[in-house]
């Protein structure tokens, strides 16, 4: 499964999980949200995560994002074991700011910072400030087509613009893994597709692994591959396999 991308020969996968299991509660109220989930996403690979409501998509994403530790199993990011069961083996905060980028359904921008500052704060968190950080932030906003709104507060931006700022922020520190939980749920289908294409492009250009939770079946052709969760059990989504594997090389 790792053979589809030439980059995988030289660098470790962006994310790898082995036997990931998440159990909420105990006794009568016990819910098994993830059952023995094993998967791999290479750097530069853009993957969709499908599944009915309550199937465990958000749970998987927050486990990989080091937000919500799994009950059992192992998480490797960039070839390094970061979680073993519920035990963190690294400085989680450092890992988040250096390797991970998050985008959520709501854009979750900081309301008192302008679009530009929202990107700058991510850079500042990683210790990058000054003119080079500013240039990087402006470049990102420009590449997402919102350079002219850089000085606006989030409240003055449209939903799509806010989401693009959130994506710029997630990309600021060139994460090796970008995680997005229903990022287009609040957007119309045209804009939603644009945002999905954006994920694909930045994944390919930045050689980042991208995992996007989505309900939108129509945008599936944008992705290299799609996974499906059902009652906490992960499977390769039918019909997405070989055709998308080849598309990876087109960029």
């Amino acid at each position: 499964m790792t053979a589809h991308s030439p980059t995988s020969l030289t660098s470790p996968p962006a994310i790898e999980t082995v036997g990931l299991t998440k159990v909420y509660g105990s006794g009568n109220t016990e819910v098994v949200a993830l059952r023995d989930v094993s998967m791999t996403i290479e750097r530069g690979e853009v993957v969709a995560l499908l599944g009915p409501s309550g199937s465990g998509k958000s749970t998987l994403l927050s486990a990989i994002g080091l937000i919500n530790p799994p009950t059992r199993g192992e998480i490797r990011i960039d070839g390094q074991v970061v979680m073993n069961g519920s035990r963190a083996l690294v400085d989680v905060q450092r890992f988040r700011r250096e390797k991970l980028g998050f985008v959520f359904q709501k854009s979750n921008l900081i309301p008192f910072l302008t679009a530009l500052e929202n990107v700058l704060v991510a850079l500042a968190i990683a210790g990058r400030e000054g003119r080079s950080a500013r240039r990087r932030a402006m470049d990102l906003l420009a590449s997402l087509g919102i350079a002219d709104r850089a000085r606006n507060l989030p409240s003055a931006l449209s939903g799509g613009q806010q989401q693009r700022v959130a994506i710029a922020r997630a990309l600021a520190n060139r994460p090796s893994l970008l995680l997005a939980d229903e990022p287009t749920a609040a957007l119309d289908s045209k804009l939603g597709r644009q945002v999905m294409e954006l994920f694909r492009d930045v994944g390919h250009e930045n050689r980042a692994g991208v995992l996007v939770v989505t309900h939108d079946q129509r945008a599936l052709d944008v992705f290299d591959r799609s996974l499906r969760l059902e009652d906490g059990v992960l499977s390769e989504h039918a019909g997405s396999g070989a055709t998308t594997l080849t598309s990876t090389h087109s960029t």
Binding site: I67, R97, E98, I110, I125
Partner: peptide, 12 residues
């Protein structure tokens, strides 16, 4: 909420 967000982004 903003503080949680900053922590999510890995703020010290």
């Amino acid at each position: 909420h903003d503080i949680a967000l900053l922590k999510l982004m890995g703020a010290r």
